[in-house]
Design a protein around this nucleic acid. Structure first.
Lengths: 167, 167
DNA sequence: AAAAAGGTTCAGAAATAATTGAAAGTATGA
DNA sequence: TCATACTTTCAATTATTTCTGAACCTTTTT
């Protein structure tokens, strides 16, 4: 396989995976492009390589920076801005975990806490409701806790876990 | 809070969470409705409660069954079909994990294995490409492994992990 | 102070995904 | 065998998400 072909396949696949997990395709593709680029790229470079508009590039780069997985890089004597992706994949995974936790899990958790205050414990319907939402809340808290630990973990986290799981 | 209000909030929230994670809103809402219903519901019931069409209901119920988190229930002497959701939330989580692994992670893993066979190890670009895709592949394998274990795990998996992580 | 070189914004256009509803399919039982 | 009571399918419509590009900023250079 040639480099160009491999690159394209990677960018494509990353875009698909992104959109399957609720991240917009272009954002994931820009991320992919930056990940495999040894040099920082300008907005212009990205526009050209992915054939996308200036506005699209700009907005998605901003999102990627909001997620904390792409950084702006200023080069001495250069007026334009360059962008680099965080190359440490574990860091990337931790960062994404942290953000989704904050953005998406926490609001749901908050709601569930409210829902559990539902009064009138007698009817079957109320019982069932409380049970299910309570269970979901408990599981979410556990996942949340696990993810929090992961997001603060070091290199060896995985190994430790896996070793323990073998026992 | 009244039951009806709580129900609606839950259904709404589950739908939102679903669409943030790449699952269509209606499918998640049907799932939510079934989760909190003490009785099995007919397609008709679901259509009415969520104000959606017959076709939509049917297709999303089928998807939920494909995911293995909703079952068809046939009632003696009743011609129409009823549906129940798996109420064991851990089972639901395991099942979703298993499916997404199979549907979304495995194809990417396969591609990455191919990409790593890229020849021409000299150029910086090729090196970088191999490094990044290799790293992603390794992490994906590890996550995949962890998720596989999770998807086959028992009730106490979480506790075991958490206890180990405290050490 | 005007022009140049870049960066940002956002209303409308385009692309994608979800939904409807009516027609077709399937079993049941009178 | 035919009517009834459902379920399934899918082309057309509708809703949602994403993208474009031109106008508008902001900073630097001449």
């Amino acid at each position: 396989m040639k480099l160009t072909e491999a690159k394209n396949k990677f960018i494509q696949a990353w875009g698909t995976l992104g959109s399957e997990w609720g991240i917009n395709r272009t954002m994931a593709q820009i991320h992919a492009l930056l990940l495999i680029s040894p040099e920082a790229l300008s907005a212009e470079d990205i526009m050209e390589q992915l054939s996308i508009s200036r506005g699209n590039t700009n907005m998605n780069l901003r999102s990627l920076m909001d997620w904390g997985i792409v950084y702006k890089e200023l080069v001495q004597g250069e007026r334009r801005e360059f962008f680099v992706a965080e190359k440490d994949i574990l860091k990337v995974a931790r960062q994404i975990t942290k953000e989704r936790r904050k953005r998406e899990l926490e609001p749901v958790l908050k709601l569930f806490t409210e829902l559990n205050e539902l009064e009138g414990g007698s009817k079957v319907e109320v019982e069932e409701f409380k049970k299910v939402t309570g269970d979901i809340k408990d599981l979410t808290l556990r996942v949340d806790d696990l993810l929090e630990k992961f997001s603060k973990s070091d290199e060896n986290w995985f190994y430790k876990i896996l070793v323990q799981m073998m026992k």
